[in-house]
Design a protein around this nucleic acid. Structure first.
Lengths: 155, 155
DNA sequence: GTGCGTGCAAAGACTTTGCACGTAC
DNA sequence: GTACGTGCAAAGTCTTTGCACGCAC
């Protein structure tokens, strides 16, 4: 019963391996390497970054395999798309993680990460009311950072 | 002073035209047509859809112009990317709209839209604490819909 | 009249796919 | 030993860009 609380968390590789077995798929060196690279990479990443990280430590994988593995990891609920922009895919570990919420400035692009327990509580309550079981969430606030709040008043 | 409250809302075309003028850009028929198509299109859309909508009503625009106009409309704060997936860009009107929040089932992909005043209040409070001026937000809940909640307990 | 805008087609960026060989089970 | 996995390169999608002509200001 996967209730990803920090205490009862099983190692990610076990989670992934079990997922693969259930699907009749194989746990290969390449797939293990990709997962390890993700674990070691702190925060959101893109396919290309992962490839470079892996190359750096001498793990040779093709980009095709990375993309294929990323899809599997998503299906396994281990990573999720971060969806910063639609230009390219960004992913991040979610299994067993508290959601990271983000506030982004619409003028400068500056971002601030935060975590709100209150938000998680709200999420859980909304789910409960509808009979759904919460798994995670993404909250992005669009705002204007303090410096200057005009920018539209010059002719 | 654009404070998009439902009452004092000025027509979108005026907002856009003013934005363009401030940037030293021109308000062309094509740009007006794209904006109108967005207004008439209910909910999120992609560039291609917009093109078809416009063709259907006899407005001929090139895809390049649509993309270029969508970027301007984003900069003007009239639309925003919906970020459903990273495969392609989805946009939606935001100017003067209440944010739409969404709950998505991680197994079936089924989604439920909702709107939470409480969430908006939380957003405003977080912004206030940091001295930022809220413009909008996006909240996505990932959950499992009721039907069956196992699916991972075999093996 | 000038500079910005448009359409077209080509280029670009990211991702997926077909195929032959390799490997986990 | 079999079916799935991998790398490579080609193909696919969506988006951006260069250029010559046209239009808003």
């Amino acid at each position: 019963m996967p209730e990803p609380t920090p205490d009862t968390l099983m190692p990610l590789c076990s989670v992934f391996r079990r997922f693969l077995r259930n699907q009749g798929l194989k746990y290969t060196v390449e797939r293990a390497d990709v997962l390890q690279a993700i674990i070691d990479h702190d925060g959101p990443f893109e396919a290309e970054e992962l490839l470079l990280d892996m190359r750096r430590r001498g793990h040779r994988v093709s980009k095709a395999t990375i993309y294929r593995t990323l899809r599997l990891l998503q299906e396994a609920g281990i990573i999720t798309q971060a969806l910063f922009d639609s230009k390219q895919a960004h992913f991040q570990l979610i299994y067993g993680k508290q959601p990271r919420d983000v506030m982004v400035c619409m003028r400068t692009g500056r971002t601030i990460d935060f975590h709100s327990e209150e938000l998680s509580a709200l999420r859980d309550r909304i789910c409960r009311e509808l009979g759904w079981k919460p798994v995670g969430h993404r909250f992005q606030i669009f705002a204007m950072s303090p410096e200057r709040t005009e920018g539209e008043q010059e002719a």
